[in-house]
């Protein structure tokens, strides 16, 4: 893991100790070195991941997704919905039109929720930042948990038969013919679209990354070793639910949150608790709930948030035990 990023460490060392001339053993050096190394690594991985996934994404349109999932029930389709969610573009402002589009195509409510849960939880930008900071193993755990969570949460919502808690008007809307169906776009156009996403996403998140890495860097350099192990270690059973309770209403700056969490892990916050926190930040947020309220009744939103939050707490405990 360290090998492919070795040149970045070399650059960070050069800059910190030689260009800035900071004495290696000081708190300041530890912080600055951490910040430079992390920012470089995150930006490179972000660009690569976003490009790859955006390219893949040009093959997946909402219209195709609706056709694949329409009228299908069974665990298999929850898994497909969840997997499509991992590579789907997701801006909380699109969640309502997508939701209506799915329902109108006859996609079962539970399957729609499998998509809705995984889609914000697993996205290429978060994966890139996780990979850059927490390493491949934690990233794989996060992605797999995100998919399982979507499958499970959607399945439970399907079993509970909550269709009556969807606002009535949703069932009356007719979706017009998709006029913008991209049929045969060339490799060049796909590449251009992917490059555009890189520019767009990196352009939006870099500031959060730098803020997050800076806070993380300061904590990394100055906070006493093992401080969190003492107060929020594995023995403290309240740590996971508290982390999730804090994370649920928090919104969107997960790109900045991840480097902070990296530094918390460095000071002894268990990995399960950390991942649970990050999942709760990305999976549900207050603004998204407010938007979804337009199509879902309060009861369904409450059930949705509870199922997701409880599953995340469970996931947190599980990885605290396993790792």
């Amino acid at each position: 893991m360290a090998d492919i990023f070795y040149p970045l460490q070399w650059i960070a060392d050069k800059l910190t100790y030689e260009v800035f001339g900071i004495t290696p053993t000081t708190h300041l050096a530890a912080s600055v070195n951490f910040i430079i190394y992390d920012v470089l690594k995150i930006v490179i991985l972000l660009a690569v991941m976003i490009f790859a996934i955006s390219y893949l994404r040009t093959y997946i349109t909402p219209e195709k997704t609706r056709k694949v999932l329409g009228g299908k029930t069974g665990l298999r389709y929850h898994l497909i919905a969840s997997l499509i969610g991992t590579v789907s573009p997701f801006c909380s402002c699109s969640s309502v039109p997508l939701f209506i589009g799915f329902v109108e195509a006859g996609v079962p409510l539970g399957v729609t929720f499998s998509f809705l849960i995984t889609s914000p939880l697993v996205n290429e930008a978060a994966v890139a930042v996780l990979w850059a900071t927490l390493g491949l193993k934690a990233t794989v755990i996060y992605v797999v948990s995100g998919i399982v969570l979507g499958v499970f949460g959607g399945y439970v919502i399907g079993v509970l038969k909550l269709e009556r808690y969807v606002e009535e008007f949703v069932y009356k809307i007719k979706v017009g013919k998709q006029a913008n169906e991209q049929e045969s776009i060339t490799i060049k156009e796909r590449t251009d679209l992917a490059l555009e996403s890189v520019k767009d996403i990196v352009g939006r998140v870099w500031i959060y990354v730098i803020i997050g890495v800076t806070i993380g860097g300061i904590f990394h350099g100055y906070a006493p070793e093992g401080i969190l192990e003492k107060y929020a270690g594995k023995d403290n059973l309240l740590a996971v639910p508290i982390a999730v309770l804090i994370g649920v209403p928090l919104y969107s700056n997960v790109m900045g949150m991840i480097p902070i969490v990296e530094s918390l892990i460095g000071k002894g916050l268990p990995i399960g608790t950390s991942l649970a926190f990050l999942m709760s930040v990305t999976a549900v947020s207050l603004p998204e709930m407010i938007i979804l309220r337009k199509v879902l009744k309060k009861e369904l939103i409450a059930i949705f948030v509870s199922i997701v939050a409880l599953s995340i707490v469970f996931t947190g405990y599980l990885f605290n035990i396993l790792l």
């Binding site: 909402p62 219209e63 573009p89 801006c91 402002c93 699109s94 309502v96 039109p97 997508l98 209506i100 589009g101 109108e104 008007f169 809307i173 007719k174 979706v175 017009g176 013919k177 998709q178 006029a179 913008n180 337009k294 199509v295």
Partner: peptide
């Protein structure tokens, strides 16, 4: 309003 948006068959915004 969603009705008009959906009438155009749009599921991802902006459009």
């Amino acid at each position: 309003d969603f009705e008009t948006i959906m009438k155009y068959g749009v599921m991802v915004t902006p459009a």
